[in-house]
Design a protein around this nucleic acid. Sequence first.
DNA 1: ACGACTATTGCGACTCGCTCGCATTAGCCA
DNA 2: TGGCTAATGCGAGCGAGTCGCAATAGTCGT
Lengths: 151, 151
Amino acid sequence: MGRHAPGKPGAGEAATLEDALELVRSEGGRVTSSRRLLLQALFASSGHRTAEDLAVEVQAEAPDIHISTIYRNLEELERLGVIVHSHFGHGPTTYHLATSVHGHFVCEECGRLIEVPESIFDGLAKQARTRFGFTIDPHHFAMLGRCADCS
Amino acid sequence: MGRHAPGKPGAGEAATLEDALELVRSEGGRVTSSRRLLLQALFASSGHRTAEDLAVEVQAEAPDIHISTIYRNLEELERLGVIVHSHFGHGPTTYHLATSVHGHFVCEECGRLIEVPESIFDGLAKQARTRFGFTIDPHHFAMLGRCADCS
DNA sequence: ACGACTATTGCGACTCGCTCGCATTAGCCA
DNA sequence: TGGCTAATGCGAGCGAGTCGCAATAGTCGT
């Protein structure tokens, strides 16, 4: 816990919806209803959500909120460090709160997602660094393969 | 060496263009000029090629060959085990001969690609299997991060 | 060498997941 | 209350494929 996407100045974390809105405000952003609804959706379920998915939920409350607004807000919230996104093989980008960063294994056959502690990548990270000077980011892209049921 | 994408029945490898065409023929496929030109392009350079990229090269010889034909042939050649594809973060799918399968590190900042031996994933593979019953496929999707220059 | 059979092709239309420009709306602060 | 400008809705566009269909062309048996 306590880690977020690296490198962005002014990034911070938010444990509650109000914290997140406060963070938006403190950066000169405005608290709009689309922002609030989007954050509500994100805080309501702890899982991985696609933009489409979130749009449907937000639009249940306010049907006029456009998908492009969702994307723009997701981008902004990520810049602020409130959320992070990951890619699971084929299929759309998923977003979740930055408070729970972890690695992902995704089954190429059935699509099943397994959340794994980032520490499982420690050995690989070390080798990558010493042998190739490369710093891996195990969170951003999932590791693909086959789950127990499919292999 | 000697390993290819797992699981496909009838899969084989081809060391030369003629071997590959023979394999196509032996599976009831036809040796067409688009097939031959595509394989020529693939054998000519050992790197990672996108479909677009290959299309341009093929079309230099035969301008009428449509991009959809390229995609269909790439799919078929992969089914036969002649080539494999990988995904490098954002950006299009890349294809290369199955004779050199390896892992990939891709820099999220500058896009640089580092080819790494699959053995670097051995420790992770073992942990993934014992702790989660998950068999990783380190070739299909690249591991993202930062290269020495960008970190 | 000739058909017939059917794999393959070219073409165009379409999808998915975004991304962008632009005119309008609406937060926020004085 | 007004003004400044961030944010929004809308629609068009884009990259990377994917698909149905009618026309074409390899291959094989004779």
